[in-house]
Nucleic acid binder design. Sequence first.
RNA 1: GGGCCUCUAGCUCAGUUGGUUAGAGCAACGGACUUUUAAUCCGUGGGUCGAGGGUUCGAUCCCCUCGGGGCCUACCA
Length: 497
Amino acid sequence: MSESPIEHEDEQDLPEQIAIRLEKRERLNALGDAYPVSLPITHTIAQVRAAYPELEIDVATGDEVAVVGRVMFQRNTGKLCFATLQAGSGERIQAMLSLDKVGEEQLELYKELVDLGDHLFVAGEVITSKRGELSILVTDWKMAAKTIRPLPNLHNELGEEFRVRHRYLDLIVRDRAREVVKIRAQVMASMRKTFADAAYLEVETPMLQTIHGGASARPFKTHSNAFDTELFLRIAPELFLKRAVVGGIDRVFEINRNFRNEGADRTHSPEFAMLEAYEAFGDYNVMAELTQRLIQNAAMDVFGTHQVVLEDGTVNDLGGEWARISMFESLSAAAGVEITPETPIAELKKLADKEGLEIDHPQHGKYVEELWEHFVKGDLINPTFVMDFPVDTSPLVRNHRSKAGVVEKWDLYIRGYEQATGYSELVDPVIQRERFVEQMKLAAAGDPEAMKLDEDFLKALEFGMPPTGGMGMGVDRLLMSLTGLGIRETIMFPLVK
RNA sequence: GGGCCUCUAGCUCAGUUGGUUAGAGCAACGGACUUUUAAUCCGUGGGUCGAGGGUUCGAUCCCCUCGGGGCCUACCA
Protein backbone atom coordinates (compact mmCIF):
# COMPACT_ATOMS: atom_id res chain seq x y z
CA MET A 1 0.00 0.00 0.00
CA SER A 2 1.24 3.47 -0.75
CA GLU A 3 1.47 5.96 2.05
CA SER A 4 -1.20 8.58 2.36
CA PRO A 5 -0.64 11.28 -0.24
CA ILE A 6 -1.75 13.89 2.25
CA GLU A 7 1.45 13.27 4.21
CA HIS A 8 3.64 14.34 1.30
CA GLU A 9 5.41 17.60 1.99
CA ASP A 10 5.42 18.65 -1.61
CA GLU A 11 1.95 19.74 -2.60
CA GLN A 12 2.78 18.98 -6.20
CA ASP A 13 2.56 15.30 -5.32
CA LEU A 14 -1.01 15.50 -4.03
CA PRO A 15 -3.78 14.12 -6.17
CA GLU A 16 -5.52 17.00 -7.86
CA GLN A 17 -8.83 16.70 -6.04
CA ILE A 18 -7.21 16.63 -2.60
CA ALA A 19 -5.03 19.66 -3.32
CA ILE A 20 -8.08 21.61 -4.47
CA ARG A 21 -10.09 20.67 -1.40
CA LEU A 22 -7.23 21.61 0.90
CA GLU A 23 -7.25 25.06 -0.69
CA LYS A 24 -11.00 25.28 -0.11
CA ARG A 25 -10.43 24.32 3.52
CA GLU A 26 -7.94 27.17 3.84
CA ARG A 27 -10.40 29.62 2.35
CA LEU A 28 -13.17 28.43 4.68
CA ASN A 29 -10.87 28.89 7.67
CA ALA A 30 -10.00 32.38 6.44
CA LEU A 31 -13.68 33.24 6.13
CA GLY A 32 -14.71 31.52 9.39
CA ASP A 33 -14.22 27.89 10.31
CA ALA A 34 -14.14 24.79 8.13
CA TYR A 35 -14.88 22.70 11.24
CA PRO A 36 -17.12 24.72 13.59
CA VAL A 37 -17.41 23.35 17.10
CA SER A 38 -21.20 23.73 17.27
CA LEU A 39 -24.06 24.60 14.98
CA PRO A 40 -27.58 25.90 15.72
CA ILE A 41 -29.33 22.75 14.51
CA THR A 42 -33.08 22.65 15.20
CA HIS A 43 -34.16 19.37 13.58
CA THR A 44 -32.82 16.10 12.29
CA ILE A 45 -33.50 15.37 8.64
CA ALA A 46 -35.69 12.47 9.80
CA GLN A 47 -37.77 14.86 11.93
CA VAL A 48 -38.34 17.21 9.01
CA ARG A 49 -39.35 14.36 6.73
CA ALA A 50 -41.67 12.94 9.38
CA ALA A 51 -43.33 16.33 9.94
CA TYR A 52 -44.31 16.67 6.27
CA PRO A 53 -45.24 13.21 5.03
CA GLU A 54 -47.32 14.33 2.04
CA LEU A 55 -46.98 17.90 0.84
CA GLU A 56 -48.38 19.01 -2.49
CA ILE A 57 -46.13 20.23 -5.29
CA ASP A 58 -44.66 23.73 -4.97
CA VAL A 59 -45.78 24.43 -1.40
CA ALA A 60 -44.24 26.93 1.02
CA THR A 61 -44.93 25.92 4.63
CA GLY A 62 -43.64 29.02 6.35
CA ASP A 63 -41.79 26.75 8.82
CA GLU A 64 -38.13 27.46 9.45
CA VAL A 65 -35.70 24.64 10.22
CA ALA A 66 -31.95 24.23 10.50
CA VAL A 67 -30.37 20.84 9.69
CA VAL A 68 -27.04 19.26 8.84
CA GLY A 69 -26.30 16.55 6.36
CA ARG A 70 -23.59 15.20 4.13
CA VAL A 71 -23.78 16.45 0.54
CA MET A 72 -24.51 13.37 -1.58
CA PHE A 73 -25.58 15.03 -4.84
CA GLN A 74 -25.10 18.52 -6.20
CA ARG A 75 -26.88 20.19 -9.06
CA ASN A 76 -25.55 23.69 -9.44
CA THR A 77 -27.06 26.08 -11.97
CA GLY A 78 -26.52 29.78 -12.48
CA LYS A 79 -28.89 31.22 -9.92
CA LEU A 80 -30.48 28.17 -8.26
CA CYS A 81 -28.52 25.31 -6.73
CA PHE A 82 -29.75 21.97 -5.44
CA ALA A 83 -28.02 19.64 -3.03
CA THR A 84 -29.13 16.35 -1.51
CA LEU A 85 -28.16 16.15 2.17
CA GLN A 86 -27.91 12.83 3.96
CA ALA A 87 -28.02 12.22 7.70
CA GLY A 88 -25.75 9.63 9.28
CA SER A 89 -28.79 7.40 9.66
CA GLY A 90 -29.43 7.63 5.93
CA GLU A 91 -32.42 9.96 5.60
CA ARG A 92 -32.10 12.54 2.88
CA ILE A 93 -33.52 15.95 2.16
CA GLN A 94 -32.97 18.44 -0.62
CA ALA A 95 -31.51 21.87 0.00
CA MET A 96 -32.20 24.67 -2.50
CA LEU A 97 -30.08 27.81 -2.66
CA SER A 98 -31.51 30.58 -4.79
CA LEU A 99 -29.92 33.90 -5.65
CA ASP A 100 -32.79 35.94 -4.27
CA LYS A 101 -32.67 34.18 -0.87
CA VAL A 102 -28.95 33.98 -0.13
CA GLY A 103 -27.55 36.77 -2.31
CA GLU A 104 -24.86 36.72 -4.95
CA GLU A 105 -21.86 36.53 -2.61
CA GLN A 106 -23.13 33.57 -0.57
CA LEU A 107 -24.28 31.71 -3.67
CA GLU A 108 -20.88 32.12 -5.29
CA LEU A 109 -19.07 31.02 -2.13
CA TYR A 110 -21.36 28.03 -1.89
CA LYS A 111 -20.59 27.00 -5.45
CA GLU A 112 -16.87 27.49 -4.98
CA LEU A 113 -16.41 25.89 -1.56
CA VAL A 114 -18.96 23.10 -1.13
CA ASP A 115 -18.08 19.69 -2.55
CA LEU A 116 -19.71 16.28 -2.61
CA GLY A 117 -19.16 14.62 0.74
CA ASP A 118 -18.98 17.80 2.83
CA HIS A 119 -21.07 18.10 5.97
CA LEU A 120 -23.29 21.09 5.28
CA PHE A 121 -25.43 23.12 7.66
CA VAL A 122 -28.48 24.82 6.15
CA ALA A 123 -31.23 26.95 7.63
CA GLY A 124 -34.37 27.98 5.81
CA GLU A 125 -38.03 27.37 5.07
CA VAL A 126 -39.48 23.92 4.45
CA ILE A 127 -40.98 23.84 0.97
CA THR A 128 -41.61 21.50 -1.90
CA SER A 129 -40.06 22.07 -5.30
CA LYS A 130 -41.94 22.31 -8.56
CA ARG A 131 -41.28 18.58 -8.92
CA GLY A 132 -42.69 17.94 -5.44
CA GLU A 133 -39.41 17.19 -3.68
CA LEU A 134 -39.40 18.09 0.03
CA SER A 135 -36.75 20.77 0.33
CA ILE A 136 -35.25 23.44 2.51
CA LEU A 137 -35.17 26.80 0.79
CA VAL A 138 -31.92 28.01 2.27
CA THR A 139 -31.45 31.44 3.80
CA ASP A 140 -28.17 30.59 5.61
CA TRP A 141 -25.58 27.92 4.96
CA LYS A 142 -22.39 27.04 6.75
CA MET A 143 -19.71 24.42 6.29
CA ALA A 144 -20.17 21.89 9.08
CA ALA A 145 -17.07 19.84 8.22
CA LYS A 146 -14.97 20.09 5.05
CA THR A 147 -13.97 16.81 3.44
CA ILE A 148 -10.52 16.55 1.89
CA ARG A 149 -11.00 13.36 -0.06
CA PRO A 150 -13.71 12.81 -2.68
CA LEU A 151 -16.49 10.36 -1.91
CA PRO A 152 -16.50 7.26 -4.10
CA ASN A 153 -18.73 7.21 -7.15
CA LEU A 154 -22.27 6.61 -5.94
CA HIS A 155 -23.51 5.05 -9.14
CA ASN A 156 -21.43 1.87 -9.14
CA GLU A 157 -21.31 -0.72 -6.40
CA LEU A 158 -18.09 -0.58 -4.44
CA GLY A 159 -15.75 -3.54 -4.72
CA GLU A 160 -15.87 -6.00 -1.82
CA GLU A 161 -12.30 -5.28 -0.74
CA PHE A 162 -12.78 -1.52 -0.85
CA ARG A 163 -15.93 -1.84 1.25
CA VAL A 164 -14.18 -3.85 3.95
CA ARG A 165 -11.11 -1.61 4.04
CA HIS A 166 -13.17 1.59 4.02
CA ARG A 167 -16.21 0.56 6.00
CA TYR A 168 -16.84 4.19 6.95
CA LEU A 169 -17.42 4.93 3.27
CA ASP A 170 -19.49 1.80 2.81
CA LEU A 171 -21.70 3.02 5.67
CA ILE A 172 -22.16 6.43 4.06
CA VAL A 173 -22.87 5.11 0.61
CA ARG A 174 -24.76 1.86 1.08
CA ASP A 175 -28.06 1.63 2.97
CA ARG A 176 -27.66 -2.09 3.59
CA ALA A 177 -24.33 -1.55 5.37
CA ARG A 178 -26.04 0.82 7.83
CA GLU A 179 -28.95 -1.59 8.23
CA VAL A 180 -26.68 -4.47 9.16
CA VAL A 181 -25.03 -2.42 11.91
CA LYS A 182 -28.47 -1.56 13.24
CA ILE A 183 -29.72 -5.14 13.04
CA ARG A 184 -26.69 -6.34 14.95
CA ALA A 185 -27.25 -3.82 17.72
CA GLN A 186 -30.93 -4.74 17.91
CA VAL A 187 -30.17 -8.45 18.07
CA MET A 188 -27.74 -7.82 20.93
CA ALA A 189 -30.32 -5.76 22.78
CA SER A 190 -32.97 -8.43 22.24
CA MET A 191 -30.77 -11.21 23.59
CA ARG A 192 -29.82 -9.18 26.64
CA LYS A 193 -33.50 -8.59 27.29
CA THR A 194 -34.29 -12.30 27.01
CA PHE A 195 -31.54 -13.00 29.52
CA ALA A 196 -32.66 -10.23 31.85
CA ASP A 197 -36.23 -11.57 31.78
CA ALA A 198 -34.84 -14.95 32.89
CA ALA A 199 -32.87 -13.36 35.77
CA TYR A 200 -29.45 -13.91 34.18
CA LEU A 201 -26.49 -11.69 35.09
CA GLU A 202 -24.09 -10.50 32.42
CA VAL A 203 -20.42 -10.72 33.36
CA GLU A 204 -17.05 -10.21 31.71
CA THR A 205 -14.31 -12.77 32.16
CA PRO A 206 -10.63 -12.60 31.16
CA MET A 207 -9.56 -12.16 27.56
CA LEU A 208 -5.91 -12.62 28.55
CA GLN A 209 -5.40 -16.03 30.09
CA THR A 210 -2.38 -17.92 31.35
CA ILE A 211 -3.95 -21.21 30.24
CA HIS A 212 -6.36 -21.26 27.32
CA GLY A 213 -9.25 -23.61 27.78
CA GLY A 214 -12.90 -24.32 27.24
CA ALA A 215 -12.57 -25.27 23.60
CA SER A 216 -10.33 -27.07 21.15
CA ALA A 217 -8.52 -24.51 19.03
CA ARG A 218 -5.12 -22.96 18.42
CA PRO A 219 -4.67 -19.76 20.40
CA PHE A 220 -3.02 -16.42 19.72
CA LYS A 221 -0.06 -15.95 22.02
CA THR A 222 1.19 -12.74 23.55
CA HIS A 223 3.52 -11.69 26.32
CA SER A 224 3.06 -9.69 29.51
CA ASN A 225 6.00 -7.46 30.34
CA ALA A 226 4.81 -6.81 33.89
CA PHE A 227 4.45 -10.49 34.74
CA ASP A 228 7.15 -11.60 32.31
CA THR A 229 4.97 -14.45 31.19
CA GLU A 230 3.35 -15.89 28.11
CA LEU A 231 -0.36 -15.14 27.83
CA PHE A 232 -3.05 -16.41 25.51
CA LEU A 233 -5.99 -14.59 24.04
CA ARG A 234 -8.95 -16.61 25.09
CA ILE A 235 -10.46 -19.20 22.79
CA ALA A 236 -13.55 -19.47 25.03
CA PRO A 237 -14.83 -18.04 28.32
CA GLU A 238 -16.23 -21.39 29.49
CA LEU A 239 -13.91 -22.26 32.35
CA PHE A 240 -14.26 -18.82 33.95
CA LEU A 241 -18.03 -18.74 33.64
CA LYS A 242 -18.13 -22.12 35.35
CA ARG A 243 -15.99 -20.72 38.16
CA ALA A 244 -18.68 -18.02 38.46
CA VAL A 245 -21.33 -20.74 38.80
CA VAL A 246 -19.25 -22.43 41.49
CA GLY A 247 -19.26 -19.04 43.23
CA GLY A 248 -23.05 -18.96 43.22
CA ILE A 249 -23.74 -16.80 40.15
CA ASP A 250 -26.40 -19.32 39.22
CA ARG A 251 -27.57 -17.73 35.97
CA VAL A 252 -24.74 -16.09 34.11
CA PHE A 253 -23.93 -15.10 30.56
CA GLU A 254 -21.24 -13.28 28.64
CA ILE A 255 -21.19 -11.80 25.16
CA ASN A 256 -17.64 -11.05 24.14
CA ARG A 257 -14.88 -11.77 21.68
CA ASN A 258 -13.06 -15.07 21.28
CA PHE A 259 -9.84 -15.40 19.32
CA ARG A 260 -8.79 -18.46 17.37
CA ASN A 261 -5.59 -18.68 15.41
CA GLU A 262 -7.05 -20.64 12.56
CA GLY A 263 -8.35 -20.28 9.04
CA ALA A 264 -10.57 -17.42 7.93
CA ASP A 265 -13.31 -17.95 5.38
CA ARG A 266 -16.95 -17.14 4.76
CA THR A 267 -17.97 -18.61 8.12
CA HIS A 268 -14.82 -18.17 10.23
CA SER A 269 -13.13 -15.04 11.54
CA PRO A 270 -10.00 -14.98 13.75
CA GLU A 271 -11.89 -12.88 16.26
CA PHE A 272 -15.57 -13.50 16.65
CA ALA A 273 -18.31 -12.64 19.09
CA MET A 274 -19.36 -15.48 21.36
CA LEU A 275 -22.32 -15.81 23.65
CA GLU A 276 -22.05 -18.28 26.51
CA ALA A 277 -24.66 -18.88 29.18
CA TYR A 278 -24.82 -21.16 32.23
CA GLU A 279 -27.79 -22.02 34.37
CA ALA A 280 -27.39 -23.87 37.67
CA PHE A 281 -29.89 -26.70 38.09
CA GLY A 282 -30.60 -26.60 34.39
CA ASP A 283 -29.52 -29.22 31.85
CA TYR A 284 -29.05 -29.39 28.10
CA ASN A 285 -32.79 -29.53 27.52
CA VAL A 286 -33.28 -26.30 29.43
CA MET A 287 -30.48 -24.71 27.43
CA ALA A 288 -32.02 -25.86 24.15
CA GLU A 289 -35.26 -24.14 25.11
CA LEU A 290 -33.36 -21.00 26.11
CA THR A 291 -31.45 -20.98 22.83
CA GLN A 292 -34.60 -21.34 20.77
CA ARG A 293 -36.17 -18.52 22.77
CA LEU A 294 -33.14 -16.25 22.33
CA ILE A 295 -33.14 -16.65 18.56
CA GLN A 296 -36.90 -16.52 18.07
CA ASN A 297 -37.18 -13.43 20.27
CA ALA A 298 -34.38 -11.77 18.32
CA ALA A 299 -36.10 -12.50 15.01
CA MET A 300 -39.41 -11.22 16.35
CA ASP A 301 -37.93 -8.10 18.00
CA VAL A 302 -35.87 -7.11 14.97
CA PHE A 303 -37.95 -8.30 12.01
CA GLY A 304 -41.36 -8.82 13.57
CA THR A 305 -41.52 -12.40 12.32
CA HIS A 306 -39.95 -15.83 12.70
CA GLN A 307 -39.77 -16.15 8.91
CA VAL A 308 -36.77 -13.99 8.13
CA VAL A 309 -35.97 -13.01 4.55
CA LEU A 310 -32.32 -13.47 3.65
CA GLU A 311 -30.05 -11.51 1.33
CA ASP A 312 -30.73 -13.87 -1.58
CA GLY A 313 -34.49 -13.62 -1.11
CA THR A 314 -34.92 -17.06 0.46
CA VAL A 315 -36.83 -17.39 3.71
CA ASN A 316 -35.24 -18.82 6.83
CA ASP A 317 -38.08 -20.28 8.89
CA LEU A 318 -37.17 -20.05 12.56
CA GLY A 319 -40.72 -20.61 13.83
CA GLY A 320 -42.30 -23.39 15.83
CA GLU A 321 -40.71 -26.00 18.06
CA TRP A 322 -37.33 -26.94 16.65
CA ALA A 323 -36.63 -30.54 15.73
CA ARG A 324 -34.39 -32.67 17.91
CA ILE A 325 -32.61 -35.64 16.36
CA SER A 326 -30.13 -38.10 17.78
CA MET A 327 -26.64 -38.00 16.30
CA PHE A 328 -26.23 -41.79 16.29
CA GLU A 329 -29.74 -42.51 15.05
CA SER A 330 -29.65 -39.91 12.27
CA LEU A 331 -26.23 -41.13 11.19
CA SER A 332 -27.37 -44.75 11.18
CA ALA A 333 -30.42 -43.89 9.10
CA ALA A 334 -28.45 -41.85 6.58
CA ALA A 335 -25.54 -44.29 6.30
CA GLY A 336 -27.83 -47.31 6.06
CA VAL A 337 -25.98 -49.20 8.80
CA GLU A 338 -26.50 -49.28 12.53
CA ILE A 339 -23.86 -47.13 14.23
CA THR A 340 -23.71 -46.99 18.01
CA PRO A 341 -21.08 -46.11 20.61
CA GLU A 342 -20.26 -49.83 20.61
CA THR A 343 -19.55 -50.03 16.88
CA PRO A 344 -15.90 -51.11 16.58
CA ILE A 345 -13.57 -48.35 15.44
CA ALA A 346 -12.30 -50.61 12.65
CA GLU A 347 -15.81 -50.68 11.19
CA LEU A 348 -16.08 -46.88 11.37
CA LYS A 349 -12.73 -46.57 9.66
CA LYS A 350 -13.86 -48.93 6.91
CA LEU A 351 -16.94 -46.79 6.31
CA ALA A 352 -14.93 -43.55 6.38
CA ASP A 353 -12.42 -44.96 3.90
CA LYS A 354 -15.25 -46.09 1.63
CA GLU A 355 -16.68 -42.55 1.67
CA GLY A 356 -13.25 -41.04 0.99
CA LEU A 357 -12.99 -39.28 4.36
CA GLU A 358 -9.57 -38.62 5.83
CA ILE A 359 -9.53 -38.24 9.57
CA ASP A 360 -6.61 -36.59 11.31
CA HIS A 361 -6.54 -37.70 14.91
CA PRO A 362 -8.61 -40.84 14.79
CA GLN A 363 -10.66 -41.59 17.85
CA HIS A 364 -13.98 -43.36 17.93
CA GLY A 365 -15.96 -40.17 18.47
CA LYS A 366 -14.02 -38.28 15.82
CA TYR A 367 -15.05 -40.90 13.27
CA VAL A 368 -18.66 -40.68 14.33
CA GLU A 369 -18.73 -36.87 14.08
CA GLU A 370 -16.95 -36.80 10.73
CA LEU A 371 -19.28 -39.46 9.34
CA TRP A 372 -22.27 -37.59 10.71
CA GLU A 373 -21.14 -34.36 9.04
CA HIS A 374 -20.60 -36.25 5.82
CA PHE A 375 -23.97 -38.02 5.79
CA VAL A 376 -26.39 -35.74 7.64
CA LYS A 377 -25.18 -32.17 8.18
CA GLY A 378 -25.83 -30.74 4.75
CA ASP A 379 -29.50 -31.68 4.82
CA LEU A 380 -30.29 -29.74 8.00
CA ILE A 381 -31.89 -26.57 6.69
CA ASN A 382 -34.50 -25.82 9.33
CA PRO A 383 -33.26 -25.30 12.90
CA THR A 384 -32.39 -28.69 14.36
CA PHE A 385 -30.85 -29.76 17.64
CA VAL A 386 -28.52 -32.71 17.12
CA MET A 387 -28.50 -34.52 20.44
CA ASP A 388 -26.12 -36.80 22.31
CA PHE A 389 -22.53 -36.71 21.12
CA PRO A 390 -19.67 -39.19 21.52
CA VAL A 391 -17.90 -38.89 24.84
CA ASP A 392 -14.29 -38.79 23.69
CA THR A 393 -14.64 -35.55 21.70
CA SER A 394 -16.56 -33.73 24.44
CA PRO A 395 -14.29 -33.50 27.48
CA LEU A 396 -16.38 -30.90 29.33
CA VAL A 397 -19.78 -32.63 29.08
CA ARG A 398 -21.35 -35.07 31.50
CA ASN A 399 -22.28 -38.61 30.50
CA HIS A 400 -25.84 -39.16 29.36
CA ARG A 401 -28.20 -39.95 32.20
CA SER A 402 -29.50 -43.12 30.48
CA LYS A 403 -27.62 -43.82 27.23
CA ALA A 404 -24.23 -45.42 27.51
CA GLY A 405 -21.24 -44.04 25.60
CA VAL A 406 -22.69 -40.64 24.79
CA VAL A 407 -22.78 -37.29 26.54
CA GLU A 408 -25.57 -34.79 27.06
CA LYS A 409 -24.55 -32.38 24.36
CA TRP A 410 -26.40 -30.87 21.43
CA ASP A 411 -25.34 -28.83 18.45
CA LEU A 412 -27.87 -26.53 16.84
CA TYR A 413 -27.77 -26.46 13.05
CA ILE A 414 -29.48 -23.78 10.98
CA ARG A 415 -29.18 -23.80 7.18
CA GLY A 416 -26.42 -26.37 7.41
CA TYR A 417 -24.23 -24.27 9.72
CA GLU A 418 -23.38 -25.07 13.29
CA GLN A 419 -25.06 -22.27 15.16
CA ALA A 420 -24.79 -23.13 18.84
CA THR A 421 -23.89 -25.89 21.24
CA GLY A 422 -25.33 -26.88 24.61
CA TYR A 423 -24.28 -29.17 27.43
CA SER A 424 -25.32 -30.71 30.60
CA GLU A 425 -22.04 -29.63 32.13
CA LEU A 426 -19.63 -32.10 33.61
CA VAL A 427 -19.36 -31.11 37.27
CA ASP A 428 -17.70 -34.20 38.76
CA PRO A 429 -14.12 -33.06 39.46
CA VAL A 430 -12.73 -36.59 39.38
CA ILE A 431 -14.14 -37.42 35.95
CA GLN A 432 -13.21 -33.95 34.68
CA ARG A 433 -9.59 -34.58 35.69
CA GLU A 434 -9.62 -37.92 33.87
CA ARG A 435 -10.97 -36.23 30.74
CA PHE A 436 -8.23 -33.59 30.84
CA VAL A 437 -5.61 -36.31 31.22
CA GLU A 438 -7.01 -37.93 28.07
CA GLN A 439 -6.70 -34.58 26.29
CA MET A 440 -3.10 -34.26 27.41
CA LYS A 441 -2.32 -37.64 25.91
CA LEU A 442 -3.74 -36.37 22.62
CA ALA A 443 -1.62 -33.23 22.90
CA ALA A 444 1.42 -35.38 23.56
CA ALA A 445 0.49 -37.36 20.45
CA GLY A 446 0.63 -34.14 18.45
CA ASP A 447 -2.93 -32.79 18.35
CA PRO A 448 -2.34 -29.02 18.59
CA GLU A 449 -5.97 -28.37 19.50
CA ALA A 450 -6.21 -30.68 22.48
CA MET A 451 -7.12 -29.01 25.75
CA LYS A 452 -4.62 -28.18 28.47
CA LEU A 453 -5.07 -29.18 32.08
CA ASP A 454 -6.26 -26.21 34.13
CA GLU A 455 -5.50 -27.01 37.79
CA ASP A 456 -7.23 -23.92 39.14
CA PHE A 457 -10.41 -24.78 37.26
CA LEU A 458 -10.31 -28.33 38.65
CA LYS A 459 -9.80 -26.91 42.13
CA ALA A 460 -12.94 -24.79 41.66
CA LEU A 461 -14.89 -27.91 40.65
CA GLU A 462 -13.57 -29.65 43.75
CA PHE A 463 -15.34 -26.99 45.81
CA GLY A 464 -18.61 -28.15 44.28
CA MET A 465 -20.31 -27.00 41.11
CA PRO A 466 -24.07 -27.52 41.04
CA PRO A 467 -25.63 -29.47 38.19
CA THR A 468 -25.59 -26.94 35.37
CA GLY A 469 -26.71 -26.49 31.82
CA GLY A 470 -24.53 -24.44 29.47
CA MET A 471 -24.75 -23.11 25.95
CA GLY A 472 -22.51 -21.25 23.53
CA MET A 473 -23.47 -19.45 20.35
CA GLY A 474 -21.52 -17.61 17.70
CA VAL A 475 -23.12 -14.18 17.53
CA ASP A 476 -21.71 -13.40 14.08
CA ARG A 477 -23.16 -16.66 12.82
CA LEU A 478 -26.52 -15.79 14.32
CA LEU A 479 -26.41 -12.54 12.34
CA MET A 480 -25.56 -14.62 9.27
CA SER A 481 -28.57 -16.83 9.88
CA LEU A 482 -30.81 -13.80 10.28
CA THR A 483 -29.52 -11.94 7.22
CA GLY A 484 -27.89 -14.47 4.88
CA LEU A 485 -24.70 -12.37 4.76
CA GLY A 486 -21.11 -13.61 5.01
CA ILE A 487 -19.29 -13.22 8.31
CA ARG A 488 -17.24 -10.27 7.02
CA GLU A 489 -20.42 -8.35 6.37
CA THR A 490 -21.86 -8.98 9.83
CA ILE A 491 -18.64 -7.75 11.49
CA MET A 492 -18.29 -4.02 10.95
CA PHE A 493 -14.50 -4.01 10.87
CA PRO A 494 -13.24 -7.50 10.06
CA LEU A 495 -9.52 -8.14 10.14
CA VAL A 496 -7.76 -7.21 6.90
CA LYS A 497 -4.06 -7.39 6.22
C1' G B 1 -0.96 -25.75 3.14
C1' G B 2 -2.31 -26.95 -2.46
C1' G B 3 -4.59 -25.23 -7.15
C1' C B 4 -6.74 -21.45 -10.35
C1' C B 5 -7.74 -16.28 -11.16
C1' U B 6 -6.91 -11.09 -10.24
C1' C B 7 -4.46 -5.91 -9.16
C1' U B 8 -5.12 0.07 -14.81
C1' A B 9 -7.34 7.70 -12.65
C1' G B 10 -10.61 9.52 -6.33
C1' C B 11 -14.62 5.28 -7.53
C1' U B 12 -16.55 1.46 -11.10
C1' C B 13 -14.39 -0.60 -15.27
C1' A B 14 -12.56 -0.99 -20.70
C1' G B 15 -7.93 -1.79 -23.37
C1' U B 16 -3.09 -3.10 -25.44
C1' U B 17 -2.12 -10.80 -30.05
C1' G B 18 4.80 -6.26 -27.18
C1' G B 19 5.00 -0.41 -30.76
C1' U B 20 4.38 6.98 -31.14
C1' U B 21 0.68 10.51 -26.72
C1' A B 22 -3.20 4.16 -22.02
C1' G B 23 -9.42 5.15 -22.62
C1' A B 24 -14.93 5.60 -20.77
C1' G B 25 -18.69 6.93 -17.08
C1' C B 26 -19.07 9.31 -12.51
C1' A B 27 -15.88 12.75 -9.61
C1' A B 28 -12.54 17.36 -10.36
C1' C B 29 -11.26 22.22 -12.94
C1' G B 30 -13.00 26.68 -16.37
C1' G B 31 -17.54 28.57 -18.69
C1' A B 32 -23.34 28.81 -19.64
C1' C B 33 -28.01 27.96 -17.18
C1' U B 34 -33.69 30.03 -11.33
C1' U B 35 -36.91 23.72 -10.46
C1' U B 36 -32.80 20.03 -10.65
C1' U B 37 -32.76 15.05 -8.54
C1' A B 38 -26.95 10.00 -11.83
C1' A B 39 -29.39 17.68 -14.28
C1' U B 40 -27.82 19.33 -19.21
C1' C B 41 -24.42 21.76 -22.77
C1' C B 42 -19.19 23.56 -24.28
C1' G B 43 -14.09 23.19 -22.93
C1' U B 44 -9.78 21.29 -19.73
C1' G B 45 -6.69 18.66 -16.46
C1' G B 46 -5.82 14.05 -13.93
C1' G B 47 -2.05 7.58 -14.35
C1' U B 48 4.92 4.85 -11.18
C1' C B 49 -1.08 0.29 -15.41
C1' G B 50 0.37 -3.40 -7.21
C1' A B 51 6.23 -3.41 -6.17
C1' G B 52 11.04 -5.07 -7.69
C1' G B 53 13.93 -7.66 -11.19
C1' G B 54 14.54 -10.06 -16.16
C1' U B 55 13.86 -10.83 -21.66
C1' U B 56 13.57 -7.13 -25.73
C1' C B 57 15.44 -1.93 -30.10
C1' G B 58 10.95 -1.17 -27.15
C1' A B 59 7.14 -4.03 -21.42
C1' U B 60 1.01 -1.93 -18.52
C1' C B 61 1.07 -6.54 -21.75
C1' C B 62 5.83 -11.97 -21.87
C1' C B 63 8.99 -14.44 -17.72
C1' C B 64 10.65 -14.57 -12.37
C1' U B 65 10.30 -12.96 -7.20
C1' C B 66 7.50 -10.44 -3.61
C1' G B 67 2.92 -8.13 -1.80
C1' G B 68 -2.65 -7.39 -1.71
C1' G B 69 -7.35 -9.58 -2.98
C1' G B 70 -10.88 -13.43 -4.75
C1' C B 71 -12.64 -18.50 -5.83
C1' C B 72 -11.99 -23.77 -5.14
C1' U B 73 -9.70 -27.29 -1.82
C1' A B 74 -7.67 -28.68 2.98
C1' C B 75 -7.95 -27.20 8.18
C1' C B 76 -11.21 -24.90 11.78
C1' A B 77 -16.35 -29.16 18.50
